[in-house]
Design a protein around this nucleic acid. Structure first.
Lengths: 342, 342
DNA sequence: CTGTTAGCGCATTCAC
DNA sequence: GTGAATGCGCTAACAG
């Protein structure tokens, strides 16, 4: 591997000049620059990653921390992050927290590796970790992709507003003629989806519909939740209600909706004619179910792009100012809901 | 950040001794070692990632190259890779090839960053890239997770044997009493699933069943294939055969099987009583269809773990010898096939 | 505009 | 067993 010295020798200049050329310093005579560039090309020189790092302290690496990676949602998020990272000369280290090692241990490893910044996601907002992360963010920029943290804390964040998105969803169902709307609520321990439930209630209110507690199916807390199955149980719950049942259901997440649709169908209930169902998240599986699932989607790839953009900007400028970017869920209308009435 | 020098000063030893302690050199007097360790703890010293790298040339980072990351298959694969990587002190850089930049460009970036090894996946086997990767593997270990490359080339690889897996599948169908087994074959351009078809034919032979070309539905090449729809067309093809039709079908991939099941059902054919259907891949959607799909799955997380294990072993030992680890598909028996006959 | 010099933090001889 | 010295490849301050 050629070093800066080899290039200098070949171009008959000093190391400093080579360094200047490589780093785009203006104060280099065009002829000299060209000579150096030729030498670089000839020797296929590329600056040593380590030597550069030891001087600049930068790795041009960012980390994406996610919980439970076997989930297409995070795959798409990664794609978004990578989109902008690559274009800006960064690479991304994916970190599945809570799997083999704890979040804190992972973050410590990352800090030792001198990553330049971090995008943080979580399922469960733990105060200890938030405190730790805020402390970390004194050292390197951190962007939070989490509605709860983004709402509560003074941190840079990117998220979709579950509250308003749900209100829109309710409004849509109302427009399709539904007026007895039920809800499949996530486990109590998952706070991330709580704002959706609040939005649901607010939506009913705004539409002049009444909220009935018995129209809410609450998923029990489980060790390892199978959301599909949980959704199926919800389906049974509502199917058992016979004629007093809702004419539409909203679910905290798509998988719950999908399990529910499945079970309602096998109980002989026609979707969407008898019951409309709307999910939340727009996982790609939703297009493939029968009927394809109407849902509220987060523009997750775009969110990943923006998060990376924010992060890299902060890395480059050293700006400490916290910024937030809040998205709205997009209604993805497929066939588990009826057409809008005239 | 404390440096090795600070530790040396506090422990009243030289930098060399600290270095020895940190790197587990035996030739250190126990008392000295303890003093150093205390100093390290007190100063929260951790060796500089860069300085260490500049001397050792190692980053303790591996890369996982995948095509199209928004796919749970690769998410699970990542989890497997990460499982062992983290335990061995490595971190993993995820690289979505063919998205923003080409495979070759990505690999070049990775080489500049001095990653210690690489796990390579692809959809499409391009000779140019294979050649390039074999050249790369002279410099750093590369493990291929691809059946075609693994079979054809002298490289380290981890993959599931589609050929034998299919033979097992045929055998299973035979045991459930099926003897006229048809096949839904993938587009001609997708080589990755070709070994499955070959295995299918071999399986028939081994079971003493006859292979009839008219029992093979061949998907036409399309610009953007909708596999569900393609499977539905296959369903029509077989339904049209009336009483001469197969009593079982195997499909190159789950989506084809699912589309087919769907269409057969709507043509009034009872699954699995009249026709059994078996998929391949075990995508999670398979549990959700009606009836849930019997299929052959790849133990993808375990494959990821093994691939990382092989890679890290090669990094550590410097062993150039190529090793292969071939898995067999796991029969996931659900309800599109009949029970085994006594 | 360009060259000289001095470290960055560490591992690794080579002495002792 | 331990310490002093050297250099990995680079950037940045300084001098010209």
């Amino acid at each position: 591997m050629a070093t800066i010295f080899d290039v200098a020798k070949l171009a008959h200049v000093s190391k400093s000049t080579v360094s200047r050329v490589v780093n785009g310093d203006v104060r280099v005579k065009p002829e000299t620059r060209q000579a150096v560039e030729e030498a670089i090309k000839e020797l296929q020189y590329s600056p040593s990653y380590f030597a550069k790092g030891i001087r600049t302290g930068q790795t041009n690496t960012i980390a994406l921390l996610v919980p439970e990676y076997s989930n297409m949602f995070y795959g798409e998020m990664f794609n978004g992050v990578e989109d902008t990272a690559i274009n800006e000369g960064y690479m991304v280290m994916v970190c599945n927290t809570g799997n083999v090692i704890s979040e804190k241990d992972y973050i410590q490893k990352l800090m030792k590796r001198k990553i330049d910044g971090m995008i943080y996601n979580t399922y469960e907002v733990k105060p200890g970790i938030i405190r730790y992360l805020k402390q970390i963010s004194e050292e390197i920029p951190v962007v939070f992709m989490d509605e709860i943290i983004g709402t509560r804390e003074n941190v840079s964040s990117v998220y979709t507003d579950g509250y308003f998105s749900m209100i829109n969803g309710v409004r849509y169902l109302k427009n399709t003629g539904c007026c007895k709307i039920g809800y499949i609520r996530n486990e109590d321990s998952i706070q991330a989806t709580e704002s959706r439930f609040q939005g649901f209630k607010k939506g009913l209110e705004e539409c002049g519909l009444t909220f009935s507690p018995e129209f809410v199916y609450q998923c029990p807390v489980e060790k390892e939740t199978n959301y599909i199955k949980a959704g199926m149980r919800a389906g049974d719950y509502f199917a058992d209600m016979k004629e007093n049942r809702p004419d539409a259901l909203m679910a905290a997440i798509d998988l719950l909706a999908m399990g529910c649709v499945n079970q309602l169908k096998s109980r002989g209930i026609v979707i969407p004619d008898e019951i409309s169902v709307m999910g939340y998240d727009n996982i790609s599986l939703g297009e493939l179910t029968q009927p394809p699932l109407t849902t509220i989607g987060q523009p997750i790839r775009k969110m990943g792009q923006i998060a990376a953009r924010m992060l890299i900007d902060q890395i480059r400028t050293g700006e400490q100012e916290k910024t937030k970017k809040i998205f709205e869920g997009e209604l993805v209308i497929r066939q588990t809901t009826r057409p809008v009435m005239k």
